[in-house]
Design a protein around this nucleic acid. Sequence first.
RNA 1: GUGGGCGUAGCUCAGCUGGUAGAGCACUCGGUUGUGGUCCGAGAUGUCGCGGGUUCGAGCCCCGUCGCUCACCCCA
Length: 418
Amino acid sequence: MKFEKLAAPKGVREYLPPESQAFEWVREQLIYPAKLAGYQLMELPVFEDTALFNRGVGESTDVVSKEMYTFEDRGGRSITLRPEGTAGVMRAVIESNLDRGQLPVKVWYSGQFFRAERPQAGRYRQFYQVGIEAIGIDDPALDAEVIAIADQGFKNLSLKNYRLEITSLGDAPSRAAHRVDLMKFIEKLDLDEATRARAELNPLRIFDDKRPEIKNAMQDAPILMDYLSEYSRAHFEKVKSYLDQLNIAYTVNKRMVRGLDYYTGTTFEFVHDDLGAQSGIGGGGRYDGLMEVLGGQALSGIGFGLGVDRALLASIAENTLPTENFTSDLYIIPLGEEMKAFALTVAAKVRIQGFTAEVAFGDRSLKGSMKGADKSGARFVAVIGETEKESGSVELKRMSDGTLISVKIEELQKVLSA
RNA sequence: GUGGGCGUAGCUCAGCUGGUAGAGCACUCGGUUGUGGUCCGAGAUGUCGCGGGUUCGAGCCCCGUCGCUCACCCCA
């Protein structure tokens, strides 16, 4: 009986050895600056009550309207696999009253997110993000720091070909004023039905359309930046000034739109130039009304999400990944069945001292085992037989040049650390 | 959801105007189980993505389907 092979679900991105090592490295580089800045881990569920995203992310967004993995659980509850991180963080902060302590609440997260889109380069149905949120303080200096932390993450990857674009989406009064004029403008355009429907829900969306005819039509559309309230304008000026003083390069993109409805005020996006169509490697912004909409206090917050998959693609494109592969310090070959227990003992001793040690398993010939050792890339090899067991010392073979070094088992670390 | 390209060995691919499947690399074993890389020898591996059609005959032509991939819509 032969069974049919199974494949991973469509659109998921898996990271297997040896590539997984690069993935792990990228993820750690991206989030490390946040740890250094005092952000603390928040480990959250990957599924939430569907209402959280409907209300938090916004019904008008594509994410909610057509990209969510939603299902009914066994208790008849509507559950959704998280399509983004911020809403879940806010829910948890409100639920556990983290915002009743000192502000801002500063947390980071890392994990997989889910959107049911047609896959393409850099876009997956399950993808990885790291992110931070700073909740409860509306201070332009905090905006600048959040942006700086994201930027440092990309710098840690030695990336060069990326840009930071920023804008201000203003406060509620700014947006209301702009919306009136923008709607008037859009009404006059000749748009297809789908596009017009999107415009009705959120007219800003149309700025994001890549089709040339739409871009042309939107050339003279009223720009939100020109409608900013005094407060929003001053806030944004300060953010820019802080970024200047931090020597963080940016361009103001007055037409930038983000796909999540909760953004207000400072909003930003990191774009990489070598990635093809899906070029956003990270983005974020401030969200004034989100917490209140989710049943919490009326506190402002700001955060970002960085795409680990895309950051990895960018690192590959710019060839900035570290070249060292995973290799063991010591590869132990037991000579025959009776020596296996002893080999395991020696390996355990070495590992306790912080070195990586592998044992040759199976019953290959010595030559075969040596080949295995060679392919594993191990720095040293020890063949262990009767002689070694009795004398308590082994001959370490340094694979780089083939020299043999006789050493007592108790003193292995001296050679291995050299 | 819409459109383009592509599915042959583990990988990269070849396969003539349709005649019954190959190379390189990788892998396993051996060249008297106490020392790897080179060399030599041997070996295993495919329902040619899947289903149907045309044909005496299909990896090749036609239809469908699934998957991958790129782009649109969108976004990390």
